[in-house]
């Protein structure tokens, strides 16, 4: 079985833990519970007949009090950058984190998830920001950890990229 390490990265309270919980346990809670430090989960995929074991690192979101420790990115094979569609500031944070990862790990598989699609009427991500993300040519998904929309897709897309990258 192929084993890979992936991280969920993004600003605080964008729904990283919720996306993992929805993907692994089909669970969702409306209550915001902050992550401190790192939580590691495992998920096994089968893509094109190949078994892929993902070690999913849920890393506390960046804010004024916490920065992502560069050591967390050691051995990273791919990552999901999560944005809260209803909070404009999380786009800037996502792009700066992405830049940081590219500088540290080079170009490795990545997926952008614009989360909280269940409250799209409250989204503040502008067309300009959407275009900016799409121009990067990375896969961009509109997700909802609450409804489950595209949650599995972000993991399977990243899984597919990892297998391609693996050769």
């Amino acid at each position: 079985m192929i084993q890979k390490k992936i991280c969920l990265l993004g600003s605080f309270a964008v729904g990283k833990t919720s996306l993992i919980q929805q993907h692994i346990n089909s669970l969702f809670s409306d209550k915001y519970l902050t992550t401190v430090g790192v939580k590691i989960d495992k998920a096994v995929f089968e893509i094109d007949g190949k078994q892929l074991s993902l070690m999913i690192w849920d890393i506390a979101g960046e804010d004024d009090f916490t920065n992502i420790r560069p050591a967390y990115l050691r051995g990273l094979d791919g990552y999901i950058i999560v944005i809260d569609g209803s909070r404009n500031s999380t786009v800037h944070k996502a792009l700066s984190i992405h830049q940081k990862v590219v500088e540290s790990c080079g170009e490795i598989p990545v997926v952008f998830a614009i989360n909280k699609a269940d409250i799209k009427h409250e989204w503040e991500v502008t067309e300009e920001q959407f275009s900016q993300l799409k121009r990067t040519d990375y896969p961009v998904f509109e997700t909802s950890a609450k409804s489950g929309q595209s949650v599995d897709s972000i993991f399977s897309n990243l899984g597919g990229q990892l297998l391609q990258h693996h050769g």
């Binding site: 430090g37 790192v38 939580k39 590691i40 420790r69 050591a71 967390y72 050691r74 051995g75």
Partner: peptide, 30 residues
């Protein structure tokens, strides 16, 4: 503890440096 995989390199450098104070890994949850 897979998490330690990220910390051991830092720890090795710290031990070699001979510094007296402790270097912490930051918390992780199991």
């Amino acid at each position: 503890f897979p998490y330690l995989g990220c910390f051991i390199d830092e720890a090795e450098r710290h031990w070699k440096s001979g510094k007296i104070e402790a270097l912490t890994s930051g918390p992780w949850v199991e």
